[in-house]
Each structure stands twice: as C-alpha cells, then as structure tokens.
Design a protein around this nucleic acid. Structure first.
Length: 461
RNA sequence: GCCGGGGUCGCCUAGCCUGGCUAGGGCGCCGGCCUGCUAAGCCGGUGGGGGCAACCCCGCGCGGGUUCAAAUCCCGCCCCCGGCGCCA
C-alpha cells in the first residue's frame, strides 16, 4: 500500500512535520488541523462501514428469503438501515472532502540541507562559474552577491556601462518590438525578428541535442492540460498566478512542459527496473505573471510566453537526490557551453514552492543589471506530485510506493537571450553568438553565424 | 458536429439483454512446494482504504439517478474504434 510521505509523517511524527512548516515560514497549526481531520475521518469511516456492513448483510438475506412475510420484514429493516447510512454517508463525505482539501494544501517536506534564511534572502550561493564582466559602478553590489557568501570570484572590470537587454533588443539591434506587441496582445508580449528568432531556435536545438545525447527521451507534449492535471503538479497559489484558461472548456495552457510530462504516467504503475525515466520536453510556456507587479516590465526577461527545453525525471526515492544533482549539472554544462557566467543557488526553505522539497536555481550574471538573475530552476518534488497524480512505483516484491519526480529547465529561450545580449555585447553594439550554437545555425543561409550586428543589413520580407 | 459500437481488478477476456450467491477464466508478475540446477507442474497471492488483529468497507471509464439490492437499468460527461460531415 503506497502511503504519501507527508501523510505518513503527519501520522507518525507530527512535530517533525511542523518543523518543516516552520522552516517554510508557514503556520505549524496547519499540521494539527490536518491530523485532527485525518483522525476524525478514520473514526467516521469505521462508523459508516459498520452500518454499511449491516445493510449488506440484510440485503443478502433478502435475496435468499422465500417467505413473503419474512421478505417484507427484511426490506423494512434494510430501509431503516439505509436511512441511517445515508445520513452517515453525507457526514463522511463532507469530512472526506474537507480532509482532502486540507491534505492537498500541505506543502512538501523540506530536505535537511535546504537553508533556512531571513525573509530578505532567497537563496544561498553554493558555487560560481565564469569570469563575470562587472561595470565599475556595480562592483560593490557584485561583492554583495559573491564575497558576502564567502566566494572570491575573479571578474573583469568594465568601464563603460553595458546596455540593458531591453535597449539592445529595441534600439541597438532593433530586432524586438515590445511596444507593438503591447498594442496587439498586451504588456509582457514581444515580437522578435530575424537573428533573434534564429537565436531562439538555435538555443532550443542546442539544449535538445545535448540532452538527447545524454540519453534523455525527447518529448513534444500537449500544450494544454485539464484542471485535474494542474492540481496534480502545482499548488493553488501558483495556479492563480500563472495559469491561463481556455474559455468554456476544461483546458489550461501549460506554464511549462513539466506539467504534461509529469502527467505522462498519471494513474499508472511503473516497475522498479524501468526507473529512472528521463525525459526532455520542448514546448512553449504560457504564464500570467499575475503576482509580478511592475517587475521586469521592460524587455523580454519576464514574459507571458516563451520556449523552453525542460528536463523531467521519474525516479526511485533512493536515487532522486543524486538525480537532482545531475539535473542542475546538466543545466550548468549548457551554460558553460554558452560561456555565460553564473552561480548556483540553494533556494531557502521559505522560497520553495509547495511541490519542491529542495530547489536549485542557476542564475546568470547580467552585466547591465549588475545582478545574478534566474535562468534555470531545478526542483526535487519527491512524491508530492506523484501522490496527487497517483503515479506508483512497483518494487520487485510487488510492494508499492510513490515515485519521485524531478524537473529542471535546460534552456528557457527568452531569458537566455537576455543573458546573451548583456554578456556578449561589444562596444559597437555587436552581439557575439556563442560558438556552441554554430552547428544549429549553419544549416540556414539567412541565419547569423558568429555575431548579431546592430545595423540591419538584410531587408525583411 | 452527427450516427453506430465500445471502455471490466497490470494485459486479454466472461458476465450486461433477463438486477441478488465471493466479478469467473487466460496471460504476466510475486511468493511457496517439487527438483542436482533450469524448465514444466502444483499451491497461494496479485485494485484502493480503515483496523493491532479477526475482519470490514469501497471498487467494473467519471459523476449522478432508480432499487432493500446495480458491472448489469436510466441520465450527463470523458476517452477509444468505425462511418458521415467539416477543415487542412
């Protein structure tokens, strides 16, 4: 019998689960309410089952009864029990629903090596890569993001302030138009043209090529899913902030390929020796960004729509931590290939989403902003999603558990483009294209090969 | 979108018309017996939940309804197959 790890902990060691809630900055009394309701439900279930049993016994006697008088008497008795049962059933149903909602609102546990931090700290850097270009005016804040955490990072001082990706896009290269897109679709939308479109495509191919070589199975998933699926993979808050709904239908645009990939094995059993199942999905992503306020309104860093190559793994519980490391390493290797300086951050407990027990972000250095910004997010969701999607692991001895699910960005197109625009710009506005992308541009005569130039030399059309 | 056929405990399948004994069988899988080993054969197990346990409840795509009693009858929805229509 598979048991969800959170429920088991709640029953066996509620104090420990409360500690997990505290680490997340949540009210630990949530655990008490959940446990009380769980117990109430169990008691009520016993009670109802007793009455159901009695009713079943009488019903079976009716089938055998020959004597009409006896029959009439038994049917009377069955009717009486039925009334009682209906009453108890209704009560049970109410409690059950309440219990389900409460259980489904519970966040995952927090892994022991997840940092617990003050409110203003989102994550603890654990390693750095590359030699960032730091503008003279940003040196202090650069140190805030490196030395404060005990890392001495070699950097290159830049005298001229780098141009922000939004201005590169709109005014220097003139290969993006967010003004017109706002008129056509709204803010946080964009038109990209020519070389930036090639770059978007090349980035996706680069990640796809890399991941498939590593043995990840390439998947093109549905771009819309049912409500039930989303409830299985995200919490209600994320749902409200991120998800677009199709009018009049039970369909929602995916915010990431993670959603349909997780649901690929919904309601299924996976045999132990079939795991791990490693997938690489490619899809557009649609996000409302409802909670974002005015943040990153300019440019294409935070947009309603982009392309992403996503890593997703179904794993055995005992191997999920190691696979989590593998996923973030894959993402790092992709960014190393591109030559973009980054740091990896161990996300603090209070910043974890409900599904994740642990999360690493890969943050690229953005020379114009003077900040490390999120490019990749790698989460170990342990059995949180599997419990909800009912994805079970069958051991050799036929015992059942829930699988672990993990996901990580490989490449998110627009964000990676912003990092390229800021990191590889030359004084004259030229943007040097990372060499690793060359194979994916080579095939197309009109695609740029080494650099994107500020002056448009080709007419569109 | 319309008409017809279908969805049964991992897979295949019986049961549905004619409501009522534990949803029967085959395959696969797990455990045991037998055997020098393997195979075959034989026995048991193989959906979910509650209970320390004996045991009990629920479960035939999903949700309702009729009935003392529903896999079985009725209604709505989802999905699959075939035909027609529409579109590429």
């Amino acid at each position: 019998m598979p048991t969800w790890s959170v429920l088991r902990l709640l029953r066996e060691n509620p104090e420990e689960y409360k500690e997990h809630l505290r680490k997340r900055g949540l009210d630990p009394s949530l655990a008490d309410r959940a446990r009380e309701l769980d117990e109430l439900w169990r008691r009520k279930l016993q009670e109802v089952n007793e009455v159901r049993h009695k009713h079943n016994v009488v019903t079976r006697m009716i089938a055998k009864a020959r004597d009409p008088e006896e029959r009439r008497r038994l049917i009377e008795e069955a009717r009486r029990l039925l009334k009682l049962r209906e009453q108890l059933d209704a009560e049970l149903k109410r409690i059950e629903e309440e219990r389900r909602q409460l259980l489904w609102s519970l966040p995952n546990i927090v892994m022991p090596d997840v940092p617990v931090c003050p409110e203003d700290v989102e994550g603890v850097p654990i390693r750095f890569w590359g030699k960032p270009k730091v503008w003279r005016g940003h040196i202090e804040q650069f140190k805030e993001q490196t030395e404060r955490w005990g890392f001495k990072i070699d950097y290159e001082v830049v005298d001229e302030k780098p141009v922000g990706h939004a201005d590169m896009l709109e005014y220097v290269l003139r290969l993006g138009d967010t003004r017109k897109a706002a008129e056509v679709a709204g803010s946080r939308f964009y038109y990209l043209f020519d070389d930036l479109v090639w770059l978007d495509i090349a980035l996706l191919l680069y990640a796809i090529d890399y991941m498939t070589r590593k043995g990840y199975r390439l998947v093109l998933p549905p771009y819309m899913v049912r409500h039930r699926v989303l409830m299985g993979v995200i919490d209600v808050e994320t749902f409200k902030d991120a998800i677009y709904k199709i009018e009049g239908e039970d369909l929602y645009l995916i915010a990431t390929a993670e959603h349909p990939l997780a649901a690929l094995y919904m309601n299924e059993e996976i045999k132990e020796d079939e795991l791990p199942i490693k997938l690489v999905g490619v899809s557009p992503c649609f996000r409302k960004e409802a909670g974002a306020g005015n943040r990153d309104l300019k440019g294409i860093f935070r947009v309603h729509q982009f392309h992403k190559v996503e890593q997703f793994v179904f794993a055995k519980p005992e191997e999920s931590q190691q696979i989590h490391e593998e996923l973030i390493r894959n993402a790092e290797e992709l960014f190393q290939g591109l030559g973009i300086p980054y740091r990896v951050v161990n996300i603090c407990a209070h910043e974890l989403g409900a599904p994740a027990a642990k999360k690493y972000d890969l943050e690229a250095w953005m020379p114009a902003q003077g900040r490390y910004r999120e490019m990749v997010s790698a989460s170990n969701c342990t059995d949180w999603q599997a419990y909800r999607l009912n994805i079970r692991l069958v051991r050799k001895n036929m015992e059942k558990e829930f699988v672990h699910t993990l996901n990580s960005t490989a490449i998110a197109s627009t964000r990676t483009i912003t990092a390229i625009l800021e990191n590889f710009q030359e004084p004259d506005g030229t943007v040097v294209i990372p060499k690793v992308l060359r194979p994916y541009l080579e095939a197309f005569p009109k695609a740029p090969k080494d650099a994107i130039h500020p002056v448009r030399r080709e007419k569109t059309g």
